[in-house]
Write a protein that binds this DNA or RNA. Structure first.
Length: 417
RNA sequence: GGAGAGGUCGCAUAGCGGUCUAGUGCGGAUGUCUUGAAAACAUCUGUGGGUGCAAGCCUACCGCGAGUUCGAAUCUCGCCCUCUCCGCCA
């Protein structure tokens, strides 16, 4: 949720920021509603004061006259209350449609074609033989099965088997060990959350709710990404300034309907409805989130460097930013079969946008302020596994396991059974 | 799934239609006393909104939302959550 005070102070800037995210808002209309709300509030309070004062004059049984006056006051208050509530609700509806403004260093752009490559690491892997894509490799090595998954669950599902399953656990373990050393608190969060929480997080605006699986019977949602249940771990909390930054590393399954992505990445298990994720979430003090954002990005880079996978870092432009993000960096890893860099991680600062609706604060001295919240992917499964298969494949169809993962799997080569 | 109990100002508790402007204890802050500390004593100690230069004043909030009433923490209904017992189950 946007800060209403910010909207009052800098209406033009906020409108411009929203526009850069392709959201049109009628600021004048919203400010008008805001003024109306204040007015109705004053009126309501005056009536309430009158009632309170009047009620104090009654001792014991009221006379008919007093009863009549009280009743009249009640009716007036009821009317004033309804008017006030209606306007408040209207205001909230408008406010909930205003996206988090991009940070000033975010490039203005209309869509992902205007994202910016900030740097590259490594060189695209070269082969002196005809390479295979992740699905061919996966099927030949008996570590990926999409055919049976399609029969059991439908399209965009997959089985990871044998070393495929072990690779996931290896990546998870490697990420956890790395991040725990950095002071992150390990956590396994719920994957089902209440609708109201999802709304507060700002994931249901801008049509993003099409991608959410709903459990209608119980009014619940399946999480689309791990931070959706990690961030609310501190809802309604006031943390101590001394305890910041507070960092978590979580592991959970994520679920996405992938509506609107028909025909995109249909081969194999690059884009699936269900996947596991190791995710980082940071809570930091005001003014610290820029530094923290770079820190999370540096960890992501370190992880992919350890795997020896060539990648590029991409700065996401305003038009491609999500509703709640103020800045976002992606890491894209080289996929030889596609001759392209493809997204494997994403880190965002959502500033205080979620803290306001989830009431997450920290206390410094006597002052309470909203927490700045950031998230970043460590490993979002399947994709790093697929990148390893493709980049580490050998002429005979076997796949070398990256050095840092070998100890978790107990071998250095995946070969056909 | 069935039966029951309960959610009160950081924590613990009182309150069961007007005296609640929510009491008390603990914790916390400040001050007095003291060389310093402890103890004792005194004062203060929730959140949002409005108004004011400020002290303050007003208003809402007793899990959330509706309702009854001149008047609701207190009564009624719905929802959420916690606990106990039974059943089922990893």
């Amino acid at each position: 949720m946007i800060d209403i005070q910010l909207l009052r102070d800098k209406p033009i800037e906020i409108a411009k920021a929203a526009k850069s995210k392709k959201v049109d808002i009628n600021i004048d209309h919203i400010l008008e509603i805001d003024r109306k709300k204040a007015e109705l509030n004053k009126n309501l309070q005056k009536l309430q004061e009158e009632r309170n004062t009047f009620n104090k004059t009654i001792k014991g049984k009221p006379t008919d006259e007093q009863r009549a006056k009280g009743e009249k006051l009640r009716e007036q208050i009821e009317i004033a209350e309804h008017a006030f509530k209606a306007v408040s609700e209207e205001l909230n509806q408008w406010l909930s449609k205003i996206p988090n403004p991009p940070k000033s260093d975010v490039k203005i752009g209309k869509d992902d074609s205007q994202n910016e490559v900030l740097r590259k690491w490594g060189e695209p892997t070269k082969f002196d033989f005809k390479t295979k894509d992740h699905l061919e490799l996966g099927e030949e090595l008996d570590i990926i099965d999409v055919k049976r998954a399609a029969e059991v669950s439908g399209t965009r599902f997959g089985y990871l088997k044998n070393e495929g399953a072990l690779l996931e656990f290896a990546l998870k373990q490697f990420a956890f060990e790395t991040l725990i050393k950095e002071g992150f608190i390990p956590v396994i969060p719920p994957v089902i959350i209440k609708k109201e929480i999802m709304n507060s997080l700002g994931y249901t605006q801008m049509g993003e709710d099409e991608n959410i699986y709903e459990i209608a019977q119980d009014n619940l949602y399946l999480v689309g990404t791990s931070e959706q249940s990690i961030v609310p771990l501190h809802m309604n909390d006031t943390l101590k300034f001394e305890d910041l930054p507070l960092r978590y590393v979580g592991f959970s399954s994520c679920f996405r309907r992938e509506a609107g992505s028909y025909g995109k990445d249909t081969k194999g298990i690059f884009r699936v409805h269900q996947f596991d994720k190791v995710e980082m979430v940071s809570f930091v003090a005001e003014g610290e989130d820029d530094k923290e954002h770079e820190y999370l990005l540096s960890i992501e880079e370190k992880l992919f460097q350890s795997l020896g996978l060539p990648y590029q870092v991409v700065g996401i432009c305003s038009g491609d930013l999500g509703f709640n993000a103020a800045r976002k960096y992606d890491i894209e890893v080289w996929f030889p079969s596609q001759q392209k860099y493809r997204e494997v991680t994403s880190t965002s600062t959502v500033t205080d946008f979620q803290s306001r609706s989830l009431n997450m604060k920290y206390q410094i001295g006597n002052e309470k302020k909203y927490l700045q919240v950031l998230n970043g992917t460590a490993f979002s499964m399947n994709r790093p596994i697929l990148a390893i298969l493709e980049n580490y494949q050998r002429k005979d169809g076997s796949v070398e396991i990256p050095k840092v993962l070998q100890k978790y799997i107990g071998k250095d080569i995946i070969s056909s059974k």
